[in-house]
Write a protein that binds this DNA or RNA. Sequence first.
DNA 1: CGATCGATTGAGTAGCGTCAAATCGGGTGG
DNA 2: CCACCCGATTTGACGCTACTCAATCGATCG
Lengths: 229, 229
Amino acid sequence: MQTALRTVPPPTRMSHMPTPFRAVPGALALLEQFGCTVTVRRDHEIYRHGEPTDFCWRILTGCARTVKLMEDGRRQIGEFLWPDDLLGMDDFGTHYFDGEAVTDLTLRRYPRRVVEAQAEGNAVLALWLRTITVTNLRFAHRQLVLLGRKTALEKIASFLLEMDRRSAQTDGGVVELPMNRTDIADHLGLSIETVCRNLAHLQREGTVGILRSGIDLLDRDALLELARE
Amino acid sequence: MQTALRTVPPPTRMSHMPTPFRAVPGALALLEQFGCTVTVRRDHEIYRHGEPTDFCWRILTGCARTVKLMEDGRRQIGEFLWPDDLLGMDDFGTHYFDGEAVTDLTLRRYPRRVVEAQAEGNAVLALWLRTITVTNLRFAHRQLVLLGRKTALEKIASFLLEMDRRSAQTDGGVVELPMNRTDIADHLGLSIETVCRNLAHLQREGTVGILRSGIDLLDRDALLELARE
DNA sequence: CGATCGATTGAGTAGCGTCAAATCGGGTGG
DNA sequence: CCACCCGATTTGACGCTACTCAATCGATCG
């Protein structure tokens, strides 16, 4: 299991700290005693849509996605999540999306009952929970504009810049993309071929370099221009 | 002004009550003393993106929209809002969308500072605010699937059912649509012509009737089938 | 080394957008 | 009351973006 986890992309931000006991937002500290650490293998589920919202998770290492699968197989990925992101607080009652592991994951799991109970007596935690939800909502709203009104090329440019911001590992300009092309396509409302073609186009233009390890953002200004935000 | 407001579509749910003093969610009752009633004319702004989030609004009568305008004129409507819906709580700091009046509006406006201050000392209000945000997030997530993966016809069917649910005035099966075709198109990521053509298609099929006052949902089962949800 | 899975490239097409014209409906002024 | 006007809607013709189907390439693994 440990060796499996080591094959995963970059151990990113948390790897240098003894797992759950690091700089947790102050408000979350009092939940720590109720948390337990779990692992989920690549492409396996964290939770399924329709399940009761009994837990939420904080990502320790790895990358996760939220997914909606239509009956005929069409798929929409709501968002990708990185270390320190909170998963499963987007709903009351039952989950709307599925939560899945893009890479092997280590998670810190907390019972929602405890989270909600603590929030009731702790205004800082309560505000922090709403802040997280508002942040997610802002992301969703930006994604609405992207899906509704941007061209394929604009979507790709926006996505690359977004991944650069979120996965924020500054080894030169190379963005590591733990998800595959299908995931990217299903996040941007495109086909996998259109994703490939537009990445190739950006490469021919000299805007990006396509590496095995990720995408090299050679010309961020050009990408910003294309992203139209 | 009053006569202007009377020309607006359906006075919907609130019209039979003396405006702000009606069944306000208990948690909001203690904010009522800080609220003031404002009106906004059709197509005018309530707030602009980038403005500080100094206020939020509860809709008393009329219909509002949240809008993102791209530099070249492309437009995405995030959501439509009806009486009792809360507007302007989606962000901290500055607004992302514009808020605009679809019809002439009466609003109850509250200072955010007061709302936040009250929430800090009142767990019920705090939870209620988060519940509203979570509800908005769920709507946004459904819209992501619609924009990313549904066909034009599926989008139209989904939209009609959604409007039926939200504007919930049960005069037979007729959904009143206060927004114009352009607004619908910009909400669904379509062109106005595609909206028209698909509505016409549904009419030819006998699924809906297109009336001056709105859309008659003749065959809800067919719409549900088409909406794929 | 062959098998397999993801990524890429090519060819052809369909759905939806754009441009343009016609129609409808409501409001206005004579 | 009626003719006209103007904006919103609808319909038609055509084009383009992005999808589908299919083949190839590349990398990893047994």
